[in-house]
Design a protein around this nucleic acid. Structure first.
Lengths: 189, 189, 189, 189
DNA sequence: ATGTAATCGAGACGGTACGTCACGTCTTGTT
DNA sequence: AACAAGACGTGACGTACCGTCTCGATTACAT
């Protein structure tokens, strides 16, 4: 079993960077473990020693990139959600970040293990943060008391995610605003 | 430049059937072109002659399976949408159909070409059917006149899709009903 | 079974010509049945209807090319053999004819059937002609009475054939003369 | 740019052995790279990493099999050559060894590169050994001083090679003796 | 300071699937 | 019935990566 104390930080960073760069430059199809190792100047075994596979590397790369999902609470629920939705939509519209997310989604589809990891480490925090903000709004009487907060979160995040995955429309601030508008209308008292 | 007139219908059907069966039985990992060819009793070349790759085969298999996206219009918008949403959710919850969709999604992510095909041949019809039903409801005064129908469609389809992709919750009739309820609340006059 | 009466002479000639041309232009590696058919403007089946395979086509091409193996008999054995040997060596040195012969040799190595055909239709006549000339020389007392004529023929043809196959030396008139000289020395009374 | 220092000797031997065995057991038609790899318990890539193709494998197998071409020199030229010619003829008559040689000849005809290799690594040594023995004989006055040694070698090796390639006669000790007899008659003072 | 044990880079290994090529057969009109 | 055209099942080709496995050569810790 690997001795984490002796782990080379240089290699760890090089691998994650190489993975991100390759995704940005050549796309998912060229993102092979061998390519990551070569680009990072690292032996393949060093990757397999510390990660179970390609997907886990991407996940870690994305987790490192992702900032803390701290949501603003200015008291103005609509304004706060607009900020969040715009950020989410912008991230999906950004080619570099989007490539990583897309790659991770592919890996996710093939592995329940990884799917759970992604859900718990990456999504849950984000969704929980939104949920908390909604709960606060609900307590403040800005939402009906009977709304299911999980559904409410999905009403906000589901549409842009669907649009991004299936490329069925543009991902703009205007769109983000529209999603917030529509969702809040359904949730308001 | 294959001569489509001489194409063997027997082979075409055998290939699509084999692809569907393999997905149902052994999952995506075992869905290789060689396995499809072997199972269908067909040469690999016959697959490559008519489809650009594995993804296109899956797409065609799914398109053939998918019935016509004719939506009911009983006049009761809520009832009609509930029927549709329950069907969509059931499909996503069904392991067999879901496997095909999942496989197709993976292939999609690796090819813009295929992504466009999927969007136009598989998704657009479904989404358009929902949109038309909503438009009829809008004309009948059951929806506000100012709702953006594209957003409305996404409000219905986005949440279950998000939940399915990221496995963040159960996909049940109750859930479907909740999604319809919430969406209609936001769209009602 | 094919009805030889209806056979298309046009196709027959086109096929043999295409085979010869392809050998001359692109070499043996490109000499596929499909290439012959395409170049000849002929269906593949027309080839397989009349020949058992590629080798038989080449054989027929070569048989048609090869003139009658009539040997001169001027009474001067050395002069006659020199003429023949120079002709043989020249043929082996000629890239076009040599390509066909080489191709046929390859096919021969893989099929006893074809090897027998080549031996009987192509080689035997040539070797027999040489043998007859030697027999006449023997009768005229220009050869020892006890020489084995089959061996004598091989003493003339074997060396240049070996040299050609294995590319171990130049194939010139001088060389041909040397072979005749050496062989006759061994056969003379 | 494979790293020859890390090459697996076990694999190298297994591949060459498998190639020889397959030739002996099933013949050239079944001698595919895939069959060699399977029989040797080796990945195909391991073959392609170290040899350019099937032909080179056969060549190496034959080179390893072939003993050193050390010719006896008892002082009795006729006896020494008889030993050699009988060995050559026996080798050509032996189905197993002959299969390898035949296979190599086929491969040779398709590649100038390989042909040169075969000539230089396999044939040249053998022919040179014979040539040296003849040179010694010439020095000892057993051959005329003016004989061309290259021609003399071909007079010995050419006939049996021709007979073997074209299957025009039996390959026996008696035949070998006849060839030596005839050649020496032509070369004697 | 030195031994020792794990990590490191490199890359060969046994595999699996890829997408292509040509084989020889079969099928479909045309002549 | 032979023909041109070309789709078909078959099977080998040579390539790309997979994940595992040796190799010395660092490198960091415990003597």
């Amino acid at each position: 079993m690997p001795d984490v104390a002796r782990r080379s930080e240089r290699s760890r960073v090089a691998i994650l960077t190489a993975a991100r760069d390759l995704l940005g430059e050549t796309g998912y199809a060229q993102l092979t473990v061998e390519a990551i190792a070569a680009r990072a100047g690292v032996g393949k075994q060093t990757i397999y020693r510390w990660w179970p596979g390609k997907g886990a590397v991407i996940l870690e790369a994305l987790v490192e990139t992702a900032g803390e999902a701290a949501l603003p609470d200015t008291g103005d629920l609509r304004a706060d959600l607009t900020v969040v939705l715009r950020a989410i939509v912008a991230e999906l519209a950004d080619p570099a970040l989007s490539a990583t997310t897309r790659a991770l989604t592919i890996e996710t589809l093939g592995s329940d293990e990884l799917a759970a990891q992604v859900r718990d480490r990456l999504l849950r925090p984000q969704m929980d943060a939104v949920k908390e903000r909604l709960r606060a709004g609900q307590a403040a009487g800005q939402l009906r008391a009977d709304v299911d907060l999980d559904l409410a979160v999905e009403a906000l995040i589901g549409p842009p995610y669907h649009r991004w995955m299936l490329r069925t429309g543009p991902l703009t601030d205007t769109y983000a605003d529209g999603v917030v508008e529509q969702a809040l209308t359904g949730l308001a008292p």
